[in-house]
C-alpha cells in the first residue's frame, strides 16, 4: 500500500441487512473497481456489501500498483475463510479469453505482467478480470436498476465513458472482451483528439474532465459567462462534481454545458437503442450526480432521435448502486463465473 492513504468503511447494498459482524459460513466474494482509485469490497452472494477498502492508485509504477491490488484483496479477506473468488473491474480493455489487460489509457501500463496469474498466485483463489463498465453493468443488472430485464444497456459517465451490454440475459463482451466501448463512439469527423488515438469520440465531449474542459472553453468563448457564480470558482480547481453542484444551484454556465452534454449523450444513446432494441438504458457514474439536469436532456435528445417502436419499449433510468456498482458487479461476476 506504500504511502497511499487507506480507508475502510462498512455499508450495505442489495437486499441484505447491514451486518457488521462476519456472516457465519456464507460464501463471500471480493470485488475491486480499479481506476485512479482502487476500491474494493467484501460482498455477500446477494450483492450486499460487508466491508470496503480504498487506496489511491499508484500510477507511476506498475510493480507498486500490482502490489496495491494484492494488498487490498488481502486486507479485505483478512481472516475470513469464506472468500472463494475475487472479481476485478478494470478501467481499460481486457482480453477476456486470456484475462490480459490490453489497453490501459488512464492507468499505469501493466501489459508486461501476467496480472491474472500473479493475483491468483498471491491470493490463493480464483480471480476474474473484466472491464470496469462490464462489472458495473453486471452489478446494476443483478442487484440494481436493471434487475429483471433481459436486454440492458448500462453507461457509466465519469473520468471516461464506458458501457456494458446485457442481451438475452447474457453479458456481452464481443469476441475478445472489448465490446461496449461507448466512450469511443465516433460522434464527429473533425472532433477533438481522444486518449485512444482517434478523434471525435463521445468521451472527448461528455466525460467528466471534458465537461470541465468545455465549461472553461465556454467561459472563454462567451465572456458574458464571467458573471456566473461558477466562473468565480474557475480560477481555482474545477471538477465535474463542482460543475454539477453549480448546475443544481442554477448557474447559467454549468446548466448550459450540462444541457449540451445531455443532448450529445442522448443522441448517442438513441443510436444504441435503435441498434439493439434494449429494454432499459441505465445511466451511472459520477456525472449522473447532476440528476435530472443531465438525465432530462439525455432523455429528450434520445426521444427525438430514437425510432418510435424502439423508444416505446425502452426506459432510460438512473443507476441505483452509485459508485458501488463496479465493486458489487465484479464480486458477483466472480461468484457466477466461478460457479
Amino acid at each position: 500500500m506504500g504511502a497511499q492513504q487507506a480507508e475502510e468503511s462498512r455499508q450495505s447494498h442489495g437486499d441484505g441487512e447491514v451486518n457488521h459482524s462476519m456472516a457465519g459460513s456464507e460464501q463471500l466474494y471480493i470485488g475491486l473497481d480499479v481506476g485512479r482509485t482502487i476500491r474494493g469490497a467484501l460482498v455477500r452472494a446477494d450483492g450486499s456489501i460487508l466491508r470496503q477498502h480504498r487506496v489511491v492508485s499508484e500510477v507511476s509504477n506498475a510493480r507498486i500498483f500490482i502490489d496495491q491490488l494484492i494488498d487490498v484483496i488481502k486486507a479485505l479477506r483478512a481472516d475470513t475463510e469464506e472468500v472463494t473468488a475475487a472479481g476485478i473491474g478494470w478501467a481499460g480493455l481486457v482480453n477476456q479469453r486470456e484475462q490480459r489487460i490490453e489497453v490501459n489509457p488512464n492507468l499505469v501500463d501493466v501489459s508486461s505482467y501476467d496480472l491474472h496469474a500473479e493475483l491468483e498466485r498471491a491470493t490463493g483463489f480464483t480471480v476474474v478480470i473484466d472491464n470496469d463498465a462490464n462489472a458495473a453493468a453486471y452489478g446494476e443488472w443483478r442487484s440494481g436498476a436493471a434487475r429483471g430485464f433481459n436486454d440492458v444497456f448500462y453507461v457509466t459517465l465519469g473520468t471516461g465513458i464506458g458501457s456494458g451490454l446485457i442481451l438475452g440475459g447474457q453479458l456481452q463482451r464481443g469476441s475478445r472482451g472489448f465490446a461496449g466501448e461507448f466512450g469511443h463512439f465516433k460522434i464527429s469527423d473533425d472532433g477533438l483528439e481522444c486518449g485512444c488515438g482517434g478523434t471525435g469520440c463521445l468521451e472527448t465531449m461528455a466525460s467528466g474532465p471534458n465537461i470541465v474542459r468545455r465549461v472553461r472553453e465556454q467561459l472563454f468563448s462567451d465572456p458574458s459567462f464571467s458573471l456566473s457564480k461558477l466562473a468565480r470558482d474557475m480560477e481555482g480547481i474545477l471538477t465535474a462534481e463542482r460543475v454539477e453542484r453549480a448546475a443544481i444551484e442554477k448557474d447559467d454556465l454549468a446548466l448550459s454545458v450540462l444541457k449540451e452534454t445531455g443532448r450529445i449523450l442522448g443522441n448517442a444513446v438513441a443510436s444504441v437503442i435503435n441498434l439493439l432494441n434494449v429494454e432499459v438504458v441505465v445511466l451511472g457514474g459520477g456525472v449522473m450526480a447532476a440528476g435530472d439536469l443531465i438525465l432530462e436532456p439525455i432523455r429528450e435528445a434520445a426521444q427525438r432521435a430514437t425510432l418510435s417502436p424502439a423508444l416505446e419499449c425502452c426506459r432510460i433510468v438512473p443507476a441505483e448502486l452509485g459508485q458501488d456498482a463496479g465493486i458489487i458487479g465484479a464480486a458477483l461476476l466472480a461468484r457466477d463465473m466461478r460457479i
Partner: peptide, 11 residues
C-alpha cells in the same frame, strides 16, 4: 487537480 486542465493537457 483541475479536470479541465487535465483534459486539455491530454488533448
Amino acid at each position: 487537480d483541475d479536470e479541465g486542465v487535465r483534459a486539455k493537457a491530454r488533448w
